[in-house]
Nucleic acid binder design. Structure first.
Lengths: 115, 115
DNA sequence: GTGCAACCTGACACCGATGTCAGGTGCAAG
DNA sequence: CTTGCACCTGACATCGGTGTCAGGTTGCAC
């Protein structure tokens, strides 16, 4: 498929897909007139990229991490370290968010009876 | 206290404190020669602001929300709505992060025996 | 073969919180 | 009084992912 279809099927902008490619996260064949051509697997991959971005990983980190998501065997000690760091960061983020969730809960609980 | 002390006691840059004031999150008296003067309460307030920022709230939203954290009574229906929206957003963030945490767990579990 | 939609590259703009610099003033100690 | 540090304002820079525009090419449909 071409980039427009991939964009639509993944809920992503064309701009972002080109950016992901530029950052090395996504590859494409080029067809005759230099237009990007993607296979089905790309859809999954883009979803994964977006999830990792949404979790706060940078494209650079994703570039490190992606290969061993698809092929776990490639994992090197250095990569494992990156993974552990990112997991720790995510844990910290979750903890912070849960703290704020509780705070908001308290504040909301004291609201005038809109309930 | 003056701004330098507040910065140090809250682990914040002077720059950020001025920014918070500019965004309406923090107030200060001005003393004789136009220098900001803070009371003890400011320390707590800055900590709260930073926590909310870290939870992903914008200064604008914090400006909405802060008054009813200190004085729950002020909460208006509109404010309550903002609070509910932010809580929902935080819940979604937590869920997404937990998903990625699980993903990373899986990947890490398949690592070569660095353990 | 003509036209329009989709694509290409490259560049610049944006957002939001923060860093940083410049040029000037306040304040306390020597 | 002088020196040096803390403070003041205002402006511009940064980062990363994305929007958007310009100017040009491809590809499909009529």
């Amino acid at each position: 498929m071409r980039i427009g279809e991939l964009a639509e099927r993944t809920g992503t902008s064309v701009r972002s897909l080109r950016y992901y490619e530029q950052r090395g996260l996504l590859r494409s064949e080029r067809s005759s007139g230099n237009q990007r051509e993607y296979d089905e697997v790309a859809v999954e991959r883009v979803h994964l990229i977006r999830s990792l971005l949404a979790a706060g990983l940078s494209t650079e980190t994703i570039d490190d991490v992606l290969p061993c998501v698809s092929e776990p065997a490639i994992q090197t000690p250095r990569l494992t370290r990156t993974l552990l760091e990112e997991r720790a960061r995510i844990d910290a983020d979750i903890a912070r968010l849960e703290g704020m969730r509780r705070l908001l809960d308290d504040v909301i609980a004291q609201a005038p009876p809109v309930v």
